[in-house]
Amino acid sequence: MIDAKRRTLLKGSLGVSAVGVAVGAGLLTPSAVLANWPKAAFEAKDTEAALNDLLGSNATETSDEVKIKAPDIAENGAVVPVTVESGVSGAKSISIMAAGNSTPLIASFELGENAVPFVSTRIKMAETADVIAVVQTDSGLLSAAKPVKVTIGGCGG
């Protein structure tokens, strides 16, 4: 048990330094291999710009129909489990952002016709901030936010 905790601690501090250094160091400059990969959206510095670039609008409406499952406190900012689920019909895509990251847009999931509006993954968070989920439907963008506290040093403070 003790050893397991120590691993978490080590990973936690490594993760924080990884993302922390990231903030100051500059831009993502991937050699864009994929033509349809929304480079501008992923490089946008704030959530509004990212949504504009990705979905053509940032007019989101907060909705109870979008549910985010994420920990209240994340000991390791490098691995924050996030699940987004929605009951709305006709959801076309689900996007996940971490408002405190230097480039907030983390992932966007385009749903095929059979897909259930549900995705679960693990994301990196630079600091305590809201995790924002945006569900794209024919009638507009629905969003929800969930604050996640990212502790530095991993002792649960």
Binding site: V79, N101, I106, A107, L111, G112, R122
Partner: peptide
């Protein structure tokens, strides 16, 4: 049949 396409940044763990 494509069920889902995910577009990711380096922000995924």
């Amino acid at each position: 049949q494509v069920v889902m396409t995910a577009l990711w940044s380096g922000g995924v763990s």
